[in-house]
Design a protein around this nucleic acid. Structure first.
Lengths: 233, 233
DNA sequence: CCAAAAGTGTTATCCGTACACCCATGC
DNA sequence: GCATGGGTGTACGGATAACACTTTTGG
């Protein structure tokens, strides 16, 4: 039997990249279930875990249920458990209308995901009535302690992109070197030198140049690359 | 009212450094409360959180209650929640004898601490009947999924010592450059060049040479240092 | 005087950084 | 032909890595 654990939830920070901006996928909670307009507020996709489910599995399930996103890269980055995280009246009302134990103290385990906005098309389901990509610098006041979680998640992402290639998951399958550079500049929030950046990325030996080039641009068309599936020896 | 939350625990990895070895503080659970010798097994110090308590506070409290260690440096490094983490018969028996809801599914939030073995003297209390420093390469089979947590904690520590000065917390107040080097060699499990290591550490400008020297050694006595309280400008 | 660890400096190499011009395309 | 972004190489400086001998103490 599957029963929800009243004390443990997972929340997912879903990063996407579009039009030169880092975005976060937020959902709006179901007002009809809560029956009160004031309860309409933006939150991270997240929910209670099942009692018989691993944390990572719970994160995947919840993300799938609320946004239809499936099989995305997800990484745990922290547990949050300030007992006073439920302080807004709207959050309380929402819990009362939707949870079996609205007074239960909940700690949440946070994950971040990196998705290619063009590849996935999230749509609201379950108690999510709307999903929306929001630019990082336009994130509104979120429910519970979700703004804190977002801050910590962005820091974690910044630290991790510098020593791994996870950032490529934000790009379409085929991309140009300038697109990667723009992405890194966006995530790290600093300009990077073009020649040095290219040298460094190519030296990683993880990119395969395609025979294709950019089309329909009014300048020299750029070489397209994709991630190598396997490294050569 | 303080009530234990049946679904969330904290566990602490307490690292100590002694005789050139990294050690971990383990506790042995109370056999009299469990009333069964087979339940005597080594575990990380950890316990359920209180419903009205922050996770970080819970980690400090639990560590204090089980080992008397107080006000130590503690850092969260992950949440573990495999529902099959209670698989050994001994773990089940122990839960049945000690927990109000022995069948409850528990996720645990893990912390690591770095302590100066000479400075703190842990002693067992509460349900801990014994505490012992164990070398990292002699860690026995632990309860629940604690061996997994230990592995992840060691990795985290290795990553973090290279970009911070947390490792100094494992040393006594006064130490020699060779002691620091030996500590880093132990944590990173690799030899380091003496002259280069000294240059690098001294360049950090965080060490204050004392007027004292090592005593009672049958070789040239080494300069003693302590951490600077404040950096000079 | 012997053993043991402390302490010290120079050189070669690698890596990060700074920087400017020509190229291919669409309009 | 002009505007736009694509694409390229080199020189410098700082950091890292390799390396061997003298010093001070206790026994």
């Amino acid at each position: 039997m599957r029963t929800l654990n009243p004390n443990v939830s997972v929340d997912c920070l879903v990063f996407g990249y579009e039009a030169g901006e880092l975005k976060l996928l937020l959902i709006q909670r179901d007002a009809s279930r809560a029956n009160d307009r004031s309860v309409l507020s933006w939150t991270l996709p997240g929910d209670l875990i099942q009692d018989d489910e691993d944390l990572d599995d719970a994160a995947h399930r919840v993300l799938q249920e609320l946004t239809t996103l499936d099989r995305v890269f997800l990484k745990q980055f922290g547990a949050f458990g300030d007992p006073s995280r439920v302080r807004r009246p709207a959050d309380k009302i929402w819990l009362e209308k939707t949870r079996a134990f609205p007074e239960a103290r909940v700690i949440t385990v946070a994950y971040y995901a990196l998705v290619n906005v063009g590849h996935f098309s999230p749509s609201p389901s379950n108690f999510a009535v709307d999903t929306q990509w929001m630019s990082l610098n336009e994130i509104p006041d979120l429910a519970f302690d979700h703004n804190l979680i977002v801050q910590k998640g962005i820091e974690t992402l910044r630290n991790e992109v510098e020593s791994s290639t996870i950032a490529f998951q934000l790009l379409p399958e085929k991309f140009t070197l300038s697109q990667i550079q723009e992405l890194y500049e966006t995530i790290l929030d600093q300009p990077l030198d073009k020649r040095n950046f290219r040298k460094k990325i190519l030296a990683l030996d993880i990119l395969k140049p395609l025979k294709e080039k950019q089309k329909g641009v009014s300048h020299k068309p750029a070489q397209l690359f994709r991630l190598k599936l396997f490294k050569k020896n």
